[in-house]
Design a protein around this nucleic acid. Structure first.
Lengths: 145, 145
DNA sequence: TCGGTCTGGTTGAACTCTCAACTGAACATA
DNA sequence: TATGTTCAGTTGAGAGTTCAACCAGACCGA
């Protein structure tokens, strides 16, 4: 846990300092930039970013105020709304990416052997699966009520 | 990162739901409970909890309002202040611990093989050391000014 | 002993996150 | 068509974190 918190804190500080945004917001921009048309429905975006609807809504509001993202109405479902990465947003992301990528490589990939990286991938997957079943359990409990 | 965020979110939610406190505060109580006299200077406590002074100050203020911790003046250094775990705080910790420990075992130790646990320990140490030198680098830069 | 600097700790403002409540649209069923 | 339920997303309040500014005590060289 110490390693993880130090690592994420380092990344967060780096990105905040150099690009004025927390990692969570950077990830939103990345997700949008990789999507077709640089746009995603809010719910999809929440899924991709492992974020709650509420959190994403607040975050996108901030990104929109910054002029990095725009919200559009969804034509097929009038409840929906679609977040689109603007050119300015793309430019900001483009400027932020190298520093972030370097930081990740420097403190994660460069300090581990290929063997350790393989092992870490397996470990992560095991933990994730363990929690997956947990989430299913919780959902099952919910249904009981 | 997905595994880590899901894992910590799960722990946080569990502790918040069952004991009304975030993991960060639980860790403060644990640190105090393990210290001699159940008390530590704020700076020591910050070190043990990997927390900034500011964060700890706010957190202890909240714990004090709850009646779980008390602040005392430090006799040897009049700048210092000492946080002491109260009996009520200890009782709360005692009640919170089993659930938290179970959650950690269930989703971390039980899903990994002994071999994977050993590997994870090594990996974590490597990452931490990599960041240690980084912190030293930053500190060195600071000195330049 | 006097200034300058460093250290321990606190504070307030700005920001992010969480949680619960809410709006409006879609869907199902009678 | 009316009614109840589910779904997508937003909102506001409350809580935690961060950052920078600050106070007061300790330390140190002249």
């Amino acid at each position: 846990m110490t390693a993880v918190t130090k690592f994420t804190e380092h990344l967060d500080r780096q990105l905040q300092r150099d690009s004025g945004m927390p990692v969570a917001y950077y990830e939103i921009l990345v997700a949008l930039s990789e999507a077709p048309e640089r746009s995603l429905r809010m719910s999809e975006l929440a899924l991709v970013c492992h974020s709650s609807r509420s959190r994403l809504s607040h975050a996108v509001a901030r990104l929109e105020k910054e002029g990095w993202v725009q919200r559009q109405a969804c034509p097929s479902d009038r409840r929906g709304s679609i977040a689109v990465l603007t050119d300015r947003g793309f430019a900001v992301l483009d400027a932020a990416a190298p520093g972030h990528v370097t930081a990740v490589r420097e403190h994660l990939f460069d300090v581990l052997t290929p063997e350790q990286l393989r092992s870490l991938a397996e470990i992560s997957q095991a933990i994730e699966q363990g929690l997956q079943t947990e989430c299913a359990k919780v959902r099952a409990e919910m249904v009981e009520f």
